[in-house]
Amino acid sequence: MTATAFLLWAAALHAQPPVAPRPAAATVPAVLADARKLIDAGQPSAAIDKLRALDDRANPLVAELLGVAYYHANDAPRAIAELTPIVQRLEPGSLERNEAVQVLGLSHFLAGHLAESIPYLEEIRPLMPDDMKLAYALGMAYAQTRQPAKARESFARTFRLAPDSAAAHLLTGQMMNRLELEDLAEAELTHAIRMDPKLPEAHYVLAQIAIFRSRFDEALTLLRSELAINPAHAMALYRIGDVYSQQLQWDAAIAALQQSLWINPYFSGPYILLGKAYSKTNQPAAAEDMLRKAIAYDPNNKSAHYLLAQLLQQTGRSEEAKREFAIAEKLQDVR
């Protein structure tokens, strides 16, 4: 209800004779208490039904709890619709207002309204300084609205790091890379390395970005730097194998991938790339062996199933291929 609508509604209420008895004052608190219990018991839909049955919907406390219930029912847009008109009418500092602010911030965040989520999350953060989820959401919102310094501060809080430390820059770079904000990630990671050239993982994450951007020489240098810090970094060896695969240098790729597997035989990635390498070098039996190993370690890996299906199809084993394609498709739908 807009402010104007609320005023009209209030005026109309005063003008009308009290034809229908309003619910007893105790009724609303009782329903609110029941609804709260239902939400706490993981039954937000039942709470919504109860609250919607009240004819005192203009009561900000009812709207507040209804918004909270919608949030718990994974209906962020309705939570926003309920809470936005009443949040300023709730008593400052009250539990209900703080809850409404928190839920509004999180609902906007979940609905993808990142800029809108920030003022609410910022307002509630001082009251919940140790809440990791809140700090994480705020960090993600800052990152996705391209505010790296604030994002770093929030991520540092999330992971209990000093905001200006090399570790905080690394972590922020990793999160930025996850969000495909490569330019921001590179800035954070470069800063981290400048602060601590021996910081583990920073060169590796930078190398991932370099690979994605086709800067293969740079990627190889970064990966070797990572290995100089941590010679047992199986993922760095795996990515070296990846780089060589993309350059069609199959022998070098196979060597690096083998090294990666000797350190960590439980990760499916090197098996998949080995499968591709053997397939491209006309060794279908070895390729199949590798792809089946990948599936054994990572049964839900759609790429492994897909590549195996293609290999089977191309070697004339159509029925087996069909089964693998079906699995790959099913996994596609899941993700």
Binding site: Q208, I211, F212, R213, S214, R215, F216, D217, A219, D242, V243, Q246, Q247, L248, S268, G269, I272, L273, D298, N301, K302, S303, A304
Partner: peptide
Amino acid sequence: QDLGFGIRAGLCGLC
């Protein structure tokens, strides 16, 4: 391009 475990495959710059 994704190999299925969240690591993006790169491009073939030096090909």
